[in-house]
Structure formats: structure tokens, C-alpha cells
């Protein structure tokens, strides 16, 4: 269902000299959705985000938000706000002044802008730190302040450039839950650039997988994970085995592979105990590496060691043919 508030990329292209960073992108971001732009470094996801934000000029094409082409506007007039990878908080300003910065630029008087900043700080649970300088905060706290500063402009779209990459793993998982909660409460579109597939799966309503300057696949997180279109997506999103079959390549999920009496012959190359499951890496005669995630009990019922010959089996329905 299309509404006027969608963000749409139309034939969006970015060139740096002769290299093409983003090639002819067409995509509609539905209002109020949490979208993850996922891909390896250099795939064009950050350039795409920065073009939407207005920090990178558009070489060709248009960015339509709310029915208007915003691609030539200044960043602050677009209705977007960006949260930077390193947060980019102003080191000489207190937390409150950082959040109130955009209001100060608009000439809002001190009392009003401080009141508004306090509201936002309350939203991200940082009221107690309002008078501190950014250097006196931890990474997670700085991120909340950056979030508050981006939201104070009341954007229609919030752009997050690898927001969790600077945090330690424990904090990363906590912050992503908070990001998701915040997005649900505010109901605005979040576009989140990441190279971590687990992050994308955990957060996204929609995942857009990019590679080599184009969109490889876009869709709901579950659909992308269950039915990858291409070998690249299958490998990048993880948890899949790519098998060469007569008539093209196919994928089968690692947790759908079983060791059986009949099936594809293979040799075990590694066994890794992971608690609830055991990861058995095997190599087929065709040379494909196939990972089987076996439930712990099933594996220890008939344990295997590297070098053992096994046969791999799966339900025919779990095999998914790749388009490329």
C-alpha cells in the first residue's frame, strides 16, 4: 500500500570519477518501517544513506519523500536526520546544548530549546547527564545523545550509519533492542546501515541486501533469510549451504541438513560443539562445503569425527533453487 509519506529512490546513481558506487537504484521505503541496508563494505550502502541524508551529491536520479524530490535540498530541509557512525557530538557543548543545537541554529530562544531538549533526553533516558560534556559519557550514552539530537528536528526518516559498530557486543544487543523499541514508539521510518546480518535480522521489518552498487534482494527479513535469490545473498545472510546440483545451484539451510544412510556422499572436515547444537562441516565430492547443524542429542547418538564418510540428506521441500 503506497502512501504519500513513503521514501522512494528513483534511478539513484552515484559516481566518483569513473567508479560507480551506487548504480540505478529503485526502491520504496514504506513509511514507519525499520529498514536495514545490509552488505559488505564498499557495496554502496553508506553512499546510498549519505545521498538520502544530503551529505553526498546525487549523480543521477531522484529521492522522493512525501511527494517531493528532495535530492537537491539542504540536509536540514529534507525531513531526514542522520545519526553518525562515531556519533559526531560537539565536544565543546554539554549534552543538552548538543541536543538543542539545531533549535539554536533556527534561532529558538534558550528556554524553549532547553525545554525541548529535556523532553528528548527524557525519551532516551539521559536526563541525569544533561550537563555533562560528551567526553564524560560512555559509548552507549553518547549514542543515546546522538539519537536525541537527531530526533529533535522531528524527522520523517531517521538515517543511522552503522550505529552499533562502535559498541561492545553486550551493549550492541541492548542498544538494538532500544532502537527497535524507539522506532515502534515514534512510528517514523528508520533506515539503518549495517554489515552485520544478525543485526539486520534482529531489527529489520525489511532487509535490503546490497552488493556491487546494486540491490541484490529486498524484502521482509524472514523472506530474505528463507528464500535468498542469489548465491551472494545466501552466503552473506549466513546459515545456508550452497550446493551445485545438475541444473544450477541451490541452497539448503544448515539446520535442515541431516546425516543419514542414503544421500549425498561427503567427508567430515570439522566438528564444533555449540551447546544446543553441533556444527558438522563436511565436503562433498563435488567440492562444496556443506555445514550441518545437528541437534546435540542426535549428534551424540552416533558421533562423527573429522575424516569420517557420511551421507547428507534433507527433505526435498527444504531445497531452494537460486536464480543466480
Amino acid at each position: 500500500m503506497r502512501t504519500g509519506y513513503d521514501l522512494e529512490l528513483v534511478h539513484l546513481t552515484k559516481r566518483y570519477g569513473n567508479t560507480v558506487a551506487v548504480r540505478d537504484l529503485n526502491h520504496v521505503f514504506v513509511k514507519g518501517s525499520y529498514v536495514c541496508l545490509l552488505g559488505p563494505s564498499g557495496c554502496g550502502k553508506s553512499s546510498t544513506l549519505r545521498m538520502i541524508a544530503g551529505h553526498e551529491e546525487v549523480s543521477e536520479g531522484a529521492i522522493v519523500l512525501d511527494g517531493h524530490d528532495i535530492s537537491a535540498m539542504a540536509p536540514a530541509q529534507r525531513g531526514t536526520a542522520m545519526m553518525f557512525q562515531n556519533y559526531a557530538l560537539f565536544p565543546h557543548l554539554s549534552v543538552r546544548d548538543n541536543v538543542a543545537f539545531s533549535l539554536r541554529m533556527k534561532g529558538v530562544d534558550r528556554a524553549t530549546r532547553h525545554a525541548r531538549a529535556n523532553t528528548l533526553l527524557e525519551l532516551v533516558d539521559m536526563t541525569a547527564y544533561a550537563d555533562r560534556l560528551p567526553a564524560q559519557l560512555s559509548g552507549g550514552q553518547q549514542q543515546r545523545v546522538a539519537l536525541a539530537r537527531a530526533l529533535v528536528t522531528q524527522p520523517k526518516v531517521l538515517l543511522l550509519d552503522e550505529p552499533l559498530s562502535a559498541l561492545d557486543p553486550f551493549l550492541r544487543i541492548r542498544m538494538r533492542a532500544e532502537l527497535k523499541k524507539l522506532q515502534r514508539e515514534l512510528g517514523i521510518t528508520f533506515i539503518h546501515v549495517t554489515h552485520g546480518q544478525d543485526e539486520a535480522l534482529a531489527l529489520a521489518d525489511e532487509i535490503v541486501v546490497m552488493n556491487n552498487a546494486v540491490i541484490e534482494q529486498a524484502g521482509p527479513a524472514r523472506a530474505v533469510w528463507a528464500t535468498p535469490n542469489t548465491e551472494f545473498v545466501a552466503r552473506f545472510i549466513g546459515g545456508h549451504n550452497v550446493i551445485t546440483l545438475p541444473g544450477g545451484k541451490a541452497t539448503v539451510r544448515a539446520d535442515a541438513v541431516a546425516l543419514a544412510d542414503t544421500g549425498l556422499p561427503a567427508t567430515v572436515t570439522a566438528v564444533e560443539y555449540q551447546g544446543a547444537s553441533v556444527a558438522v562441516t563436511t565436503q562433498t565430492e563435488a567440492g562444496d562445503e556443506v555445514l550441518a547443524l545437528l541437534p546435540e542429542e542426535q549428534f551424540f547418538h552416533s558421533p562423527k569425527s573429522p575424516g569420517d564418510a557420511v551421507r547428507l540428506a534433507w527433505d526435498e521441500g527444504r531445497l531452494h533453487r537460486l536464480r543466480a
Partner: peptide, 13 residues
């Protein structure tokens, strides 16, 4: 940090 200048621009400065 150059991203501070971008952040300022993003905030309408």
C-alpha cells in the same frame, strides 16, 4: 572530526 561539520549541516547550521 570532519563528521562534526556534517553533523552541523545536518542540524541546519
Amino acid at each position: 572530526d570532519k563528521s562534526l561539520l556534517e553533523a552541523a549541516r545536518d542540524n541546519g547550521a
